[in-house]
Design a protein around this nucleic acid. Sequence first.
DNA 1: CGTTATCTTGACCGTCGTCAAACAGGGTGG
DNA 2: CCACCCTGTTTGACGACGGTCAAGATAACG
Lengths: 235, 235
Amino acid sequence: MVRKLATHASLSPADRKAILSLPFARRTADAASYLVREGEPPTQCAVLLTGYAYRQKLTDDGHRQILSLHIPGEALDLQGIFLDVADHSVLTLTRADLAIIPRAALRDLAAERIGVAHAIHISNLIEASIFREWVLNVGRRSARARVAHILCEFAVRLDAQGLAGPNGFELPMTQEQLGDATGLTAVHVNRMLKELQSDGLIQRQRRFIRFPHWDRLRDEAGFSERYLHLDQQAA
Amino acid sequence: MVRKLATHASLSPADRKAILSLPFARRTADAASYLVREGEPPTQCAVLLTGYAYRQKLTDDGHRQILSLHIPGEALDLQGIFLDVADHSVLTLTRADLAIIPRAALRDLAAERIGVAHAIHISNLIEASIFREWVLNVGRRSARARVAHILCEFAVRLDAQGLAGPNGFELPMTQEQLGDATGLTAVHVNRMLKELQSDGLIQRQRRFIRFPHWDRLRDEAGFSERYLHLDQQAA
DNA sequence: CGTTATCTTGACCGTCGTCAAACAGGGTGG
DNA sequence: CCACCCTGTTTGACGACGGTCAAGATAACG
């Protein structure tokens, strides 16, 4: 369960054993519960065993921006290990099973085993790359392309984790949340989804999404998976 | 000159010597010259001795988004060291003096000296935090607040590097570039600058900016310097 | 000086936000 | 099993923020 932690980006020889023998506590969290709170010092790192999560920031007048999405198997606060105060919050999107690892244990492990530290570093770098893509998405793309783009990213990442159904996936978020992730309002997200649907680029039933013409959607979104660094070499 | 590389975020004992004895080549680059090109494998890391730089990404229909700004003393491609292919480009904003360090040398040093690797890691984490703030800025703030915010960030970072004049600074970018950084058009950036000016929040003469009421501007921008992690502890 | 990039301003327009109401689904309790 | 409610989705009318286009003004630069 914890083994997916770092294999994503970088191989570790028998560092794996050390990771697997980290102390952890299992916990189940309801949907919409805080795992990290902006402004507080992080004390732990959670690994998503099941369920989804996201990060957010608020403007001082209360507008929310979602910064990233997290799918099962991902570690959630790998940068909080090394930063003294959280600059954003992390919340569950759905009910989720977590493995909670104390921050100190991870720090110690990283200090001892350079392979582990490196794997964490790579993972953080890839996340940073995703933030950069989101700056572009929210800053320079049309509403339609933004929505298409986030669907593409989600689909490709699910697929990379081996979680994608053969012909679609369940999108675990409301249109309100989709709006906060794309810098739009829920109403306008709805308009775009309907538009993509009536143009035949996606099919929906409830929150289950299907892509009849993946390549056309990809084009609309201007999506290129380069930024996900999926084939990043092991170090 | 290279010593500023990592001291920003984390102390290194006599790792400093190792950093200072890295091989490097000095080079002067004109304004608007590419240092890293999206899609290519990075081969080097440049440290900005003088001059300014920025990172950018393009949509497939040619719109540009600026992702971050870099001021003298900062290392420019500290994540390219560990990623196999660049997901964005890095360019100079002005004429700049650079110290070019081969990628392999830095990798080797990081592999040998865990303190150096850690310092690079922290630096990358802080950059990631800045990307997150930019997602928020571009996604959820009004045009006026976006422009105010980028001015605040630039001022505070200059000040942290000891480069701020007592009462203002030279903004080394055109309004077009300011637009690409904030997700706006140059025309609208101009409108916002004039508005901020006539409201007395900034003073300008040419590209030199002054802040008569720093706290009011800060409020307008919704700026909090937490995300810059300026007082991040040494590890 | 002339040439070019940048800044500035105005008029107009479109994308997207706002407000509000109707509608669907999924639980819960009677 | 059905009323009820709550959250989320859908739709329409309207308005505003910011984009577009174009022209003129101001530097910088050779």
